[in-house]
Amino acid sequence: MTNPILILSALAGFGLAACASAPSRELVDARSAYARASSGPAARVVPAELHKARVSLDTAENAFANDSSDQRDLAYVAERRAQLAEVLAKRAEHAGVRVKAEATLASEKEADHIQTKNQLEHTKTDLAGAEHDAADQRARASEADQRAAESDRRLKAMQLEFAKYAEVKQEPRGMVITLSGSVLFASNKAVLLPEARTRLGHVAAALMETKERHLDVEGYTDSQGKDEYNVELSQRRADAVRIYLVSNGYPPDLIVAHGAGNTMPVADNATPEGRANNRRVEIIVAPGDGVSMR
């Protein structure tokens, strides 16, 4: 790129040099400084400052052409004006770099802020979900505790009710309600006596309070007679009790009847009292929601 003004200046300089003295070092430096400034970013970035430098150089050139006494001083100032234009152009470039960098940083910070905000939202959502789940679990646990407490309360009430009509024990296999065989059945019979029906009626009413529980009805005899007979008799007696309970509304699929014969005696079979105690029917109410433990 050739600057026509520079060419004209150079030609003018040569023309004047031909008819006058050589230009001063200051003027040479000023021309050089202006040439450098005008070919750099100053022309685009600080054109007004470059124009001032041009005017200053023209003044110096005129002074040289007229052989003015202050030609060296004016050239000195012209060089400084050109240098000033260059420096101001650099300042503008630096400012541009700074502004661009600050904008980039602001943009990156904004993007980071948005990302952090989104992550926070996700974390909040996850936390809310976890809290909701925990609340559900607590509610379920509370309900389970309430159900268990209610079940215990009902069981204790039932236990008190049974105690009026039968012997009640709490064993690992569950609550054991023992009804004396002599009260329930006539000798060698498996038909419930009228008194037995009354007692069983009360027991059945109490059992209906907890009819979700599994029941084992077990019949026992004393040691007199043959074992096979005793097993068969005890089975029929257990069945009779089971049928009575089912007829009173207890779910049949939750009751199992079992004849155990003369096994598992609870008293001495050598005495009449002991044998009377061994002739019995036991109703085992399973603990909790499970089946009875035999």
């Binding site: 650099k90 300042r91 630096h94 770099v97 960098a101 940083l105």
Partner: peptide, 11 residues
């Protein structure tokens, strides 16, 4: 200009 340069480099 020196201050502008330092500021740009810092940015």
């Amino acid at each position: 200009d020196d201050k502008d340069r330092v500021a740009a480099e810092q940015a």
